[in-house]
Every structure is written in C-alpha cells, then in structure tokens.
Simulated assay, not measured.
Amino acid sequence: MINYRARRYRCPKCHKTFMESNPFTVAGSRISLATVYNILEDLRKPNMTFRDVAERYHISQTTAAHVFDSFVSISRRPLPEYLLIDEVYAFKSAHSKYVCVLVDFETQNIVDVLPSRRKQTLMDYFFSIPLEERKNVKIVSFDMWETYRIVSKIMFPNAICATDHFHVKQEFGRKIDRVRIDVMNKYYSRKKYLEKKKEKTKTEKLELKEASKHYYALKKCNWMFFSNDNRIFDPNEKKIYNHTLEGYYNYYDILEFMVRHDSVLDLAYDLKYELDEFYSRSNEKNALKNIEELIISFRNSQIKEMMDFGNTLVKWKYEIVNSFVPANGRRISNGLIENRNKSIKLLKHSSNGYLNWHRFKTRIMYSLNKDSTYHLYPIKNKGDFTE
C-alpha cells in the first residue's frame, strides 16, 4: 500500500490549477502500474484465468479483465509465405461453433484468429487484405475441408494448396477403426450366441474360447493400429504371460493375433503399411506416381471403407502431392497448428468459456505469440479502469 499525497500547483498569472504527474498509477486508477504489469505478465500463461489473477492481486475479476482490455491490443500479422489454416472448437456463437486459426509455418506465430470457418467469413476477411500481400503466399496447408480449398484458390493466386500427412492418416484411422469394430462385433455376436447355448459340442467350446480371445484383443488393444511404438514391430521384444489369451505374448504377437486371423482386417492393415510407405519413400518428384499406385491398391481392396478412402485420395490427390513441396527445406505440416489448438482449448476450458469474442481473440494472440506485448499506458479511447 502506498499512501500518496499529490501536490497541486497554481499558475500565478492565469490562476489555473493542475496536479503533479503521478509516477505510481494512471489517472483514475487505484492500483499501481507495477501491479498492472504483473497482472499482464501472469495473463501470458494460457492456464491463468482472470479470476486467478484477481485473487492474487486483491482486485475484482471485472477489474482484471478491464486492465487486460485497456493495455493489450494486438492486430493481425502480415500474411506469411507458408500459411497453415485449421479450426478448433473453442468459441460458440450464433454463427459458428468453430474458431478458424491462421498460423505462420516458419515463425510458428498465430497470424490471426477468425470467429468462423464458413466460406463467407473467410472470403470477406481475405478480401479486406490487399492483393499484393495475398500474392506473397506460396503454400497454404489445411485439412480436408472443402471450403479451405475453394477460398485458398480464389484468395491466393500464387499459392499451391497442400493437405499434410497428419490429416490424411487421421482420415485413414477412422476408416480402419470402422473395419476393426465390424470384425470385433462379428466375434462378439458369435461369442454371445455360443454362451446362450446350454449344450455345446467340443468344437463349439473351442470356438467360444477363440471368439472371446479375439474380442478381447480387438477391444483392449485397438491402440496398436494407430501407434508408431517400435515395440509393436519388434518380434524379439520380451514376452509376458497374458491370462486372457492364455499364453506368452509381446506387442508384436498380439497385433499379429488380431489382424492375421481375419482376411478383411489383414488386408486393411496391409494397406496401412502401404500408406506409411508412401509417406516415407515419396518426395516432390515421385509423389504423384506413388499416390496413383496407392489409389489403385485401395480401390481394388473390395473393402468398402478402404475403397472410400481410395476415393478420398483421388479427391485430394494434388493437395497431398503438394505437401511434399519443401517449405525452406522442410515438409510442410499442420502438426504445429494442432499444438496451438490444444493451447487454445486449454485457455477456453480453464476459464469455462468466453462470451466476449474480442477479448478471447486478443488473449489467444497475447498468450500464444511469444513476441506479443502490452502497452505501457492505457490504450487511447478505451477509457480508464477503476477498482
């Protein structure tokens, strides 16, 4: 606490009075500038809420929010050469429940945040940016959302569109998981049918035991279909006794037990290997040839989910090929923006949501961009804050 008594001066000629400059606070405020700066530094952390800051510095929650609004104002950044676009479920409004995030692939900074991913919102936003600036964009990377492709082709005349491997494999993961569930349900139905039979033959008892084992493995070890853990692919890993499977197994053995006893799942998993190989051995020169061979494999599989994924590859073929075009020596990826989306969700969940869109957007830019800063004094035309 500082008990400060300001001097008042009077002009000997015109007799007007004025107060001396207060070095501790701004006009109309009861909290010191040092406290204001501490509040703003704490609000850099996405997990810190206005309530946490208010309790720490003995002010009201409204004052903490008003301090932030008065000292922090962040404009959009210039469009980068390599632009990442993605959405995140973070701010629900009457127009949309998704927030569209724009990220610079090179600097890893958030360029801007938009309240919707709808086509009209994106078109209006990019139209407000000068054409010369939009022409500087070389690559736009996004997931398989058709709106992004349409908008990118119209708004960025010199850019190529790319769909990175993260979202392609994510889409494939949904398809192969559907195959796994169908096979698991087949074993489950057979298991339930045999359990209801009062009298079982010796063959049926063995069949029931096998169906139970397969159902257990497909139910409990489904994560192996999506993991890149090296232990899954090493048959020489140490084996541990599994009571349900009644034998010694390592991860490799369990995966083989799941996929090799069903022809559909076996083929689907082999196609997963082909997809992984496509991304590991392809480059800017041979990607188009390799993806055409991959499409043939998926379309000839006779498995509905795999054939559907083959059609997806056809639809996004050129965007997938463009993802191999290097961005300053690196393959462009939306993995960075997924990390930013996680932080945005943390910011939202820790505060139980935001109602003020401008404050939410500013908080995102302020917390996630390391070089973002605040003003030393209240921003003009925003008004003073009081306790």
Score class of each variant (00 low, 15 high):
residue 327 A to L: 04
residue 257 F to W: 01
residue 151 V to M: 02
residue 228 N to P: 00
residue 71 F to E: 02
residue 160 I to V: 15
residue 33 L to S: 05
residue 12 P to L: 11
residue 167 H to P: 01
residue 352 N to V: 07
residue 328 N to I: 02
residue 13 K to H: 14
residue 45 K to H: 01
residue 45 K to L: 02
residue 3 N to F: 10
residue 43 L to H: 02
residue 185 N to F: 10
residue 351 S to Y: 07
residue 199 E to M: 10
residue 112 D to E: 13
residue 220 K to F: 09
residue 197 K to N: 02
residue 24 F to K: 12
residue 19 M to N: 11
residue 312 T to A: 12
residue 297 S to Y: 14
residue 239 K to D: 08
residue 71 F to Q: 03
residue 153 K to C: 00
residue 181 I to P: 00
residue 82 Y to A: 03
residue 220 K to E: 13
residue 369 N to Y: 01
residue 272 K to S: 10
residue 198 K to Q: 13
residue 283 N to S: 09
residue 161 C to N: 12
residue 324 F to A: 05
residue 170 Q to Y: 11
residue 188 Y to F: 13
residue 205 K to Q: 14
residue 14 C to I: 08
residue 293 E to S: 14
residue 259 V to M: 02
residue 158 N to T: 01
residue 158 N to A: 04
residue 120 Q to L: 12
residue 363 R to S: 03
residue 233 F to V: 11
residue 63 T to Y: 01
residue 37 Y to S: 02
residue 262 D to V: 02
residue 323 S to L: 05
residue 87 E to C: 05
residue 28 G to D: 03
residue 189 S to E: 15
residue 224 M to I: 12
residue 118 R to M: 12
residue 141 S to R: 04
residue 52 D to V: 01
residue 6 A to H: 05
residue 67 V to H: 02
residue 1 M to V: 03
residue 98 Y to H: 09
residue 140 V to N: 06
residue 298 F to T: 08
residue 333 S to E: 06
residue 120 Q to M: 14
residue 4 Y to M: 10
residue 319 E to V: 00
residue 305 E to M: 09
residue 344 I to M: 07
residue 78 P to Y: 07
residue 239 K to E: 15
residue 120 Q to D: 15
residue 31 I to F: 11
residue 356 N to Y: 04
residue 54 A to D: 01
residue 25 T to Q: 11
residue 360 F to I: 09
residue 339 N to S: 15
residue 10 R to Q: 14
residue 153 K to W: 00
residue 277 E to H: 12
residue 19 M to H: 10
residue 126 F to C: 05
residue 17 T to M: 09
residue 259 V to T: 08
residue 125 Y to A: 07
residue 237 E to P: 03
residue 185 N to I: 07
residue 183 V to E: 05
residue 270 D to I: 00
residue 95 H to L: 13
residue 264 V to I: 12
residue 332 I to K: 05
residue 304 K to Q: 10
residue 293 E to N: 15
residue 238 K to E: 15
residue 138 K to E: 09
residue 250 N to H: 07
residue 281 R to Y: 13
residue 76 R to W: 05
residue 83 L to E: 01
residue 41 E to H: 03
residue 338 E to F: 05
residue 290 N to P: 03
residue 233 F to D: 13
residue 178 R to D: 15
residue 162 A to Q: 04
